[in-house]
Write a protein that binds this DNA or RNA. Structure first.
Lengths: 103, 103
DNA sequence: TCATTAGTTCGACCGTCATCGTACTACGAA
DNA sequence: TTCGTAGTACGATGACGGTCGAACTAATGA
């Protein structure tokens, strides 16, 4: 079973504007919070969201292309996880600050 | 000379989505970076921006209503400053993380 | 091979937003 | 009072982005 990592920016290619813009959308912030609770990664479809599958895919793509999450295949499923290390290295404190917000 | 503080959300009213959305725009991020360099506050018009005065006012209003900056009058001028304490209290590390990004 | 399941892609729709020019307000100086 | 300066408010416009349904792809299992 060859898992494959979907295209994503290298650490050096991540732009802070894109990260902030990605995080500044309620649905995507919900996704990020869910991923933060599961360091091993979460199958996209398991996160409860008030949108259809196509919209969900749209948001996941934006998060991935911004460098916030990483996604790899696992059979028919796609497992996503937060790029904690990269984000903490680039913007120390940003992610923890966002996650510390009481929702 | 009675300076007056323009309406802004209380610390408890600040929402993280609004903050992230406010920060995720290039012009506004430029403003925030400029304010970060001047703890005493900066007159809005002194920040070099690639937009007209009306667009500048628009962005300043969004930053203010999101709770990112505070603005008070000073004669015909308006002086803005970062709400560092409030943001650090609500989302510890967020602002420093954003500002640490090499632009 | 066929059906099922998980997810993406595409096109369309529509609301939001960044931008501008113009008109307006407020303050200070002459 | 009149003028100039700093900035806001408003309306219009064009672009961007979130949403959906439908069609498509890929992997699994019967």
């Amino acid at each position: 079973m060859a898992t494959k990592v979907l295209p994503q920016p290298e650490r050096g290619e991540i732009r802070v504007e894109a990260v902030l813009q990605a995080l500044g959308e309620p649905v995507r912030l919900t996704i990020v919070r869910a991923l933060a609770d599961h360091p091993a990664g979460v199958c996209c479809g398991e996160i409860e969201l008030p949108v259809t599958a196509s919209t969900r895919a749209h948001h996941l793509k934006i998060l991935r292309e911004a460098g916030v999450i990483s996604t790899h295949t696992d059979g028919t499923r796609r497992v996503s996880l937060l790029r904690r290390d990269d984000l903490e290295n680039l913007y120390p404190g940003l992610l923890t600050g966002v996650l510390s917000a009481k929702q």
